[in-house]
Design a protein around this nucleic acid. Structure first.
Lengths: 217, 217
DNA sequence: GACAGAAATTTAACCGAGTTACATTTTTCT
DNA sequence: AGAAAAATGTAACTCGGTTAAATTTCTGTC
């Protein structure tokens, strides 16, 4: 039974996948309860019922046990660009995707007052080493998006450079919007009440991306 | 003799300043020679002739011993905006400053083939933990620039948001340009030969900031 | 110029993240 | 069933960073 690539039915693979989740869940539960720095990897190993070296065969660093879920979204922006409807501009697709995320209270938009999500975001932004580690994910995200953008509008005098610049600017805009939303939520605002303002801000940010930084020219 | 703030003539203060440099210099020399990970903080302590706890009373982390010099440039962009000539737009001032940096072979532009600078950049970009740590500096730089931009063009519907977005976009553009320049230098190009292309790229990037991401609309 | 008190340094021990070597178990393939 | 391969556990280790307490060095006053 060796079905090559595609859907690996290997029992071992599924066990590995399950172990990822088990460790990640145990770690996040502990982090939320006591704070990142107050939890040792030995505590996590105990909770997940594995040994310490095994922990680090699944995750390269303690931080990744908390951030694992972000890895899945690493190529989200790139996918939105690649999977956009024919005739739709990349920026339009990204804007609509972000606005849809706002409506769905997607945690990555920052506009989400679910207590669990709120606690997780507080953990994230409140722990410098997690913020630092997340930057690595952002950087890869940027590279993926740059690749997708260059496919979308290839050539040109500075095609590759333009794609990299645009990718960086788009992601920095999304990050800025999400941080602003989260700050309001963390300050006690309710997601439902902030939706209108958040959408207006998002449209403003994308308009700025489209038409440039006129206020500073 | 207690001359308060201003220029602290304290002998102790000057000793402290000197110690910063001594440690930083010793650490960077060792890093360049053997690589960041192959140097232990004990090695640095020996070279700087201090004890390990003293090391960490001067620097919060091993990474900061290499990055200390970047802290000085943390508010450079903000200063350029604040100190611009009357009647000059912030973006214009920043563009001219970057182009001047290119001409001066300023290391922060990436266009510098001085062997020492090249080796340092190779160390920097080749060491993930240094890249991660540098992100903290970038973030603070962004906040400073956002503050300066809001002073420059206050008010507006989304004034504060616009300033934060612009700051992020400007710095991501500079970072992208510098990385591109460095990659060419690291690939063997000479700074003198690359200056024209680098300047063209810089102008292109700032034009994009001014007029928006038309290619993706 | 001696002296009391504050600040900086050293020593030694400690904690936690991450790694390594090796023996043991579990899974896969034949 | 059985051999090869992969995953796990144990124990010990390295290294970054911190802490406590004793000691030295500097500052300012009488």
């Amino acid at each position: 039974m060796s079905d090559k690539s595609g859907t690996p039915a290997g029992l071992r693979e599924r066990k590995k996948q399950r172990m990822y989740r088990t460790i990640s869940d145990a770690a996040i539960a502990l982090f939320l309860d006591k704070g990142f720095d107050a939890v040792s990897v030995a505590d996590i190993a105990d909770a997940a019922e594995v040994s310490k070296p095994t922990l680090f065969r699944y995750f390269a660093a303690k931080e990744d046990m908390a951030l694992h879920r972000f890895a899945d979204h690493e190529d989200e922006a790139a996918r939105v660009v690649r999977d956009r409807a024919a005739g739709t501009a990349p920026l339009t697709a990204l804007e609509e995707h972000f606005l849809a995320g706002l409506d769905a209270r997607d945690p990555v938009t920052g506009l989400c007052d679910d207590p669990g999500v709120l606690a997780f975001h507080r953990l994230l932004y409140g722990t410098p080493s997690l913020v630092a580690r997340m930057h690595a994910y952002t950087t890869r995200s940027e590279e993926h998006l740059a690749g997708a953008l260059e496919e979308a509008a290839p050539g040109g005098e500075h095609g590759a450079l333009t794609a990299r610049l645009a990718a960086g600017q788009i992601l920095v805009a999304q990050r800025t919007l999400a941080l602003g939303n989260w700050r309001r939520i963390a300050g006690g605002a309710r997601a439902d009440d902030g939706r209108g303002a958040a959408a207006a801000e998002a449209r403003h940010a994308f308009a700025l991306l489209r038409t440039g930084l006129a206020p500073y020219c």
